[in-house]
């Protein structure tokens, strides 16, 4: 592996936690990026906000718990976690007990956020 340049990354999570492998793939990419000293933030949009559901239990489905993995994010120096406020409203979610600390953004704020990064990785 060649010397890694530091880039700013926004990982966009758009899929539900257990409907496919994408939530886990995104988290693993986030953790690997942090391990290689990249500067990254996360944005949960659309069905992806369901990954933040408090009291989820992946073990019921025989898979690793996505919420529990999200709770470990602060250990990896992941700067900010953003969420699409409209999607939170649509699913009527109470995020006061979500696994990580999050900031709600409306549509224009999401557009502003997205132009601030070197790369967007969409999962």
């Amino acid at each position: 592996m060649t010397a890694v340049t530091k880039k700013t990354i926004l990982i966009v999570l758009r899929h539900s936690p257990y409907g496919s492998g994408l939530a886990k793939a995104a988290l693993n990419t986030a953790l690997a990026s942090a391990a290689f000293d990249q500067s990254l933030d996360l944005l949960f949009m659309g069905n992806g906000v369901l990954q933040l559901q408090p009291d989820q239990d992946g073990r019921v489905k025989g898979v690793k718990d996505v919420g529990r993995q999200l709770a470990s994010l602060p250990l990896y120096d992941i700067n900010h976690v953003y969420v699409d406020a409209q999607a939170v409203e649509r699913y009527n979610m109470d995020l006061s007990k979500s696994p990580v600390e999050i900031r709600r953004l409306d549509g224009p704020e999401i557009r502003q956020l997205m132009i601030c990064y070197d790369h967007l990785l969409g999962f």
Binding site: K7, T29, A35, L121, F123
Partner: peptide
């Protein structure tokens, strides 16, 4: 390969384009 190679790829590229998902 490992995920480190994905990090290496985007860190050393002008554009990273995602397909699928």
């Amino acid at each position: 390969s490992g995920l480190g190679q994905l990090v290496d790829a985007y860190a050393n590229s002008d554009r990273l384009i995602t397909f699928g998902g």
